[in-house]
Design a protein around this nucleic acid. Structure first.
Lengths: 159, 159
DNA sequence: GTCAAAAAATTCGCTTATCGAATAATAATT
DNA sequence: AATTATTATTCGATAAGCGAATTTTTTGAC
């Protein structure tokens, strides 16, 4: 039914809003701006990533990524290293200070989710995991092959 | 298991990323910037809303909301009207042009989701609806009592 | 009723984000 | 060897965003 699609999308938007607000809160807690925080998170998640990759994952242009990295590097939260095999690329890694910053940031969303999650029955938890993964792949699968006219490059290249 | 929480959060982030990229794409398709698009959507969803409410829902400051509204109003996509009972507040509504803009915007995410969704079995669809709503309320429940410093009122008041 | 406090929107000044185009360096292709 | 691609960066210009101050209006206290 069309209704279910509608309901799902509304629920999705609600989830989206909650996570967005959380990102802002987190960013403030760390003294970073939201985009800076997002970039730092991406860098910390991957042990080595290029500015191009960061741009793709953060959904911003390469120029923007460079500018954000400049600020993070100036604060000593990330480090840039020229690639040795391919000297065009720059490898970005999180410094200890960078990881520290992320670790000490209290992730309200995560905590809230975890606490609520633990209240659920086992089968409910399993159901949530399954559905979230399913929806994630649905959305991602779609983005890739359904809209080639849009700049999907960024989405494609995400590893 | 802590693992399930982790897995869920990763899946959530993936969903988030997809929807974020979609928002940017949509914004470009309409000739608006992403924040402008978001604000216009919020306005169109509610038949009447104040700048303060918009700010809360969009997760930005009041000053920012005003500035975004200025631009939307200049393009004739929204209209401001002084409140009659309380003349401090301004009621913002979407104009026909504003609704038109949103309607004609091809919502890639929505289409992709819908097409994937329809392939599923009935029980799977039902499960997705249930889980997404559950997760939404879990996250929002948290947001409300975990961070009262944010004006979460708007989230409550959403119809 | 008047005066002070609160509330809503706006303005202002300043910083950050963001993009596109141009540039520089390196790699790949021919 | 020369051309083309790729990667990052710089540059210039616009938009987003914040906090503080301002304006208008309402509410509360006395």
């Amino acid at each position: 039914m069309e209704n279910r699609v509608q309901t799902s999308l509304i629920a999705l938007r609600r989830i989206l809003r909650a996570t967005e607000l959380n990102a802002r809160t987190l960013a403030r807690a760390t003294g970073l701006t939201t985009p800076q925080f997002i970039v730092l998170s991406i860098v910390a998640e991957s042990d080595e990533i290029s500015p191009k990759g960061i741009a793709a994952r953060a959904g911003v242009g390469q120029a923007t990524a460079t500018s954000l990295l400049d600020k993070l590097e100036a604060r000593g939260l990330v480090k840039r290293t020229r690639g040795e095999i391919d000297r065009r690329v720059v490898w970005v890694t999180a410094t200890d200070a960078g990881r520290e910053t992320l670790d000490t940031a209290p992730d309200a969303l995560q905590e809230v989710f975890a606490s609520q999650f633990h209240r659920l029955q086992d089968w409910e938890q399993a159901m949530i995991v399954a559905v979230l993964e399913k929806v994630g792949s649905m959305l991602n699968a779609g983005t890739i092959d359904a809209s080639p006219m849009l700049d999907v490059g960024a989405v494609d290249r995400k590893q």
